[in-house]
Nucleic acid binder design. Structure first.
Lengths: 245, 245
DNA sequence: AAGTGGTCTAGACCACTCC
DNA sequence: GAGTGGTCTAGACCACTTT
C-alpha cells in the first residue's frame, strides 16, 4: 500500500495513468493520448495534465518527445519500485516474494555514532528495532532501525513484524518526505555475520539511511546489512539541468 | 561543467538559486525569499518560480513547508552531486581530488551479454573503451564502456581520457536524458582483480548502467568495477505519491 | 498546415502558520 | 488578518514532427 494521498487532481491522474501502464492498457513503445486528449479525458487544464505527466516522467514510466507525444517506456516490472524510499515489506508485496520478518530486539538504545553523525546529536537515545529478513528461509537482510521520539513513542509488535512505513503513515499519520542513503561494503561484527550466515570474509553491504518528515524532522535512522551475494540495488535516474561548477 | 542548457527562465532561476545556496548566500536552516518576492526578483510569474523551486526540491537542496516558506536543507557539500547520472570526471572536479584516468583499450567489440540483456540485441558490436581510474595513484574504478553506433562513431583520445559525458554533450550535442543503474557485489575475473589490486576474495562492486538520449535511443552501456573498500554511493530520494498495489 | 509537447502568464481560491 | 505555499485554470506563443 502506502499513501493513498491522492487527494488532488494531478496526483489522481498520475496514479490512474500509472495503473493503466502497469496493466498494459498503455503499452511500452506506444504513445499516451495527447495532452489535449487527456485534458478532455480527465476534464482538467493542460498544466494539470502536464504536472501529472511530470510525475510519471520522473519515475521513468514515460519519456516525453516534443512534436510526437509521451512514449511509454519499457521498464521491466521487477525493477519497480526503483530507488526512492521503499521498504522491504512494500517491495516484497510488489515483487510477490515469500518473505518473513523476525523481530530480534525492540528496546531503547543509544544511537550509534556512525548513524548519528551529521544528522542527530551524539548520545541520543531512540527506539531500537532489530529485524532479520528472510526469503525462503534464507537470511537476506538485517535491519537496525532507530526511531526518534518525538515523533515516535512506541511501535506495536505487529507493526514491527510488518511494515514500519505503513504503520507510520497510516496509523500515526506521519508525512514521510525524503531520505538520504549511503551504500558501502564493509566487514561486519561477528554477531551480524553469523546472523546473515556470511562467508569467512565477513563482508556485508551496508545501507545507512536517515529519513525525514515533510517538516524536516528526522525520525528514522537505519543501518541495513545485506548479504553481498543477494544484494541488488536498482536505480532510475534522470539527468539534471542544474550544475555546480 | 555539463549542460549549460539553461536557456529558459525556470532553469536559469533554479541554477541561480542553487549557486546562491552553494555559496551560502542562502544558508541551511534559513528560508529562501517567498515565492512572491522571488517573482519580483526575477520578474516572472509565480508558476515559473514554483517550477524552479521544484527542481531544487527534487535535488534535495530545499524543502518547502506550507505556511512557512522554502527551507534550505543542510546537505553536506561532499554529498553532491547526489545520485543521478554523474561521471567520475565531474565528481572529481567537484570534490577537488587528484585523480588520473588511464585508457587501456579503445576498439570495437561485441557487447557482453550481461550488459546487453534487456537493452540491446545480443551480439551487437560497439566501441569498447576500457579505463582505469586512480586517485592518488591507487586504482579505484575500472570502467568498461560500450558506445553504440549510431549515435557515436568515434571518440578522440582526449575525450576518452577526460569526461565522456562532456564530449557527448558539448562536442556531439547529444541530449543525454536518463539512465538505469544496477549495483551488485560479485567476484570478478582475475584480470580485473589484479588491475584493481583486489584482495584474495576477488570481490568488486559492479555498477552496470544503460544511458539513453532524450529520444529514447540507448547509446552507452557501462560496467564499472569498484574496489569494495573505496566504494561509496550516496543518494537523496523523495517519497513518491504513486503506488503500484 | 495541423498536431504535438515546452514555456510562461495572471489570476483565482484554498490550507496552513504566525502574530 | 496577513503572509506563506498548494492547486488549478484558460489562454497565449513557441519549437518541433508529421503529412
Amino acid at each position: 500500500m502506502a499513501r493513498d494521498n491522492k487527494k488532488n487532481k494531478q496526483d489522481s491522474i498520475a496514479q490512474d495513468i500509472a495503473l493503466k501502464i502497469q496493466h498494459e492498457q498503455y503499452q511500452p513503445g506506444n504513445l499516451l493520448p495527447s495532452e489535449h486528449q487527456l485534458c478532455d479525458l480527465y476534464g482538467s487544464s493542460r498544466e494539470t495534465i502536464r504536472k501529472a505527466l511530470d510525475q510519471l516522467t520522473e519515475l521513468g514510466l514515460i519519456q516525453k518527445i516534443r512534436g510526437k507525444g509521451s512514449l511509454v517506456l519499457d521498464i521491466q516490472r521487477f525493477s519497480f519500485p526503483v530507488s526512492g524510499i521503499t521498504s522491504f515489506q512494500e517491495l516484497n508485496k510488489t515483487l510477490g516474494m515469500h518473505a518473513t520478518t523476525e523481530v530480534l530486539q525492540k528496546k531503547d538504545d543509544i544511537v550509534p555514532d556512525v548513524l548519528a553523525k551529521g544528522h542527530v546529536d551524539f548520545g541520543r537515545t531512540a527506539l531500537h528495532i532489530e529485524r532479520l529478513r528472510k526469503i525462503d528461509q534464507i537470511p537476506i537482510v538485517l535491519d537496525e532501525d532507530y526511531l526518534l521520539n518525538p515523533p515516535i513513542t512506541d511501535v506495536p509488535d505487529e507493526a514491527a513484524a510488518g511494515s514500519l512505513y505503513e504503520y507510520f503513515e497510516k496509523s500515526l499519520g506521519l508525512d514521510i518526505s525524503y531520505a538520504t542513503k549511503e551504500i558501502t561494503v564493509e566487514p561486519v561484527p561477528e554477531r551480524i555475520a553469523s546472523l546473515l550466515a556470511l562467508n569467512d570474509n565477513n563482508l556485508a553491504v551496508v545501507v545507512r539511511s536517515m529519513t525525514y518528515l515533510a517538516d524536516t524532522t528526522p525520525f528514522q535512522l537505519t543501518a541495513s546489512y545485506h548479504r553481498p551475494d543477494r544484494f541488488k540495488f536498482i536505480d532510475f535516474a534522470r539527468r539534471r539541468k542544474i550544475s555546480f561548477n
